[in-house]
Amino acid sequence: MSNFIIQVNGAANTGSASYTAYRFTKASLEQGHQISLVFFYQDGVLNTSSFNSPASDEFDLTKAWIELNHQYQIKLVNCVSASLRRGVISKMEADECQAKHWNMQSPFEMGGLGELVTGIERADRLVSF
């Protein structure tokens, strides 16, 4: 069995790359492979906003990532600088800038590009979307 690191660069709901990333991740896990990290970079951080509110008859990608975490305990990490730039913040950043609202919480985590790089170093394969 192999160890994958998945990099998601495309936004949820406004492009197809993030959905493909989700399906690839799910298929890998179902085949018994390990996903050491799903790293959201560039517009990919928009996958993690809890303010994403698709209509009830539409596929909810943010919820799908959360369910994948619940089922397989995969790590879902955002690049913090890419996130802040795009209005995705956790309670910690909200507190720091005295904002009343935040839109990113567990199981998503904020992290740095260092996590992506060390993840790539340890993984058998990087697959970006």
Binding site: F24, A27, L126, V127
Partner: peptide
């Protein structure tokens, strides 16, 4: 399909 997609990423040296 997705299952084969996963396998192909491993049959190749990199993606």
């Amino acid at each position: 399909n997705y299952e084969q997609f996963v396998q192909e990423t491993l049959h190749h040296d990199k993606v």
